[in-house]
């Protein structure tokens, strides 16, 4: 699964506190830190500074490519490589090609979206590691990886504590 990054995590028991803390951590200059919550927390994306995903653009581009691939495939097979005169209809018969064009659009867009998601999330690598099992139930964490800008374990611990973290976990050797 590759080399896992170490770092430091602060845990909160209240989602709102965690959001406020995340905003402060971002303002402190950290870029690669992440929030781990048991459910989607409103305002967390803005607080952590997550920008809009480029996946819709990737999906659109891939869909357009699929559409053109559908047209090209059918044009080549039906009108160039193996033309068949079926009932006097033109070799390049638009209405008959619509289903394949549609299907290839969907196929390309869907597969590209999933592929792009995996690539952008660096899946199947799980990062950060399991910090606390309660993060899936009632705790909220902010994790600052060790390769973040201006990382210093002690300074980070101080920061998280000052922001009201109930627990601090250092994740260095695992």
């Amino acid at each position: 699964m590759g080399q896992r990054k170490g770092g430091i995590a602060g845990l909160w028991y209240d989602d709102h506190e965690c959001v406020v803390a995340a905003t402060k951590v971002r303002e402190a200059g950290f870029k690669k830190f992440d929030a781990i919550t048991p459910f989607p927390v409103h305002g967390m994306e803005e607080a952590v500074g997550i920008k809009r995903s480029p996946i819709p653009y990737i999906a659109f581009g891939a869909g357009a490519t699929g559409l053109l691939a559908g047209v090209g495939l059918q044009y080549w097979t039906s009108a160039v490589s193996f033309p068949l005169n079926v009932g006097g209809k033109p070799f390049f018969s638009g209405p008959a090609f619509i289903p394949v064009m549609f299907e290839l659009t969907i196929l390309f867009a869907a597969l590209s979206s999933v592929g792009a998601l995996f690539a952008m999330c660096r899946l199947p690598k799980i990062d950060p590691p399991v910090i606390d099992p309660d993060l899936t139930s009632h705790k909220f964490a902010l994790f600052i990886p060790e390769d973040d800008v201006g990382y210093n374990a002690d300074r980070c611990e101080q920061l998280l504590k000052s922001l009201g973290a109930k627990e601090i976990k250092r994740l260095s050797d695992y």
Binding site: L84, N85, V86, G87, G88, K89
Partner: peptide, 19 residues
């Protein structure tokens, strides 16, 4: 027929026009 109705409905293209 040049616009053969039979050819349009063949699901396996067993009947088509030649040149």
């Amino acid at each position: 027929c040049e616009n053969a109705p039979c050819e349009t409905v063949c699901p396996v293209l067993a009947t088509v026009h030649n040149d």
